[in-house]
């Protein structure tokens, strides 16, 4: 079984490459049981989303209209 520390590493790793089947299964099993790691994973996704938006000039500032 994976511990939380290892799972957080996989959450980052999966953003870089497709994980091997075995790791995907372990990751899923752990996430099913662990809300902390589920939240961690969603934070990772959010950080990527924010970074992309920022790099498109999409950070809200008083001049901008959202879009």
């Amino acid at each position: 079984m994976l511990n939380c520390k290892e799972v957080t590493e996989l959450c980052s790793e999966e953003m870089e490459r497709k994980l091997p089947m075995r790791e995907r299964i372990f990751l899923r099993m752990h996430l099913a049981m662990c809300s902390g790691c589920r939240h961690f994973r969603s934070h990772m996704g959010f950080i990527r989303q924010a970074a992309r938006k920022y790099a498109e000039g999409g950070a809200a500032s008083d001049r901008d209209t959202k879009g």
Partner: peptide
Amino acid sequence: GFWRPEMRP
């Protein structure tokens, strides 16, 4: 290697 309770996301 598990979250400490106060650090759990």
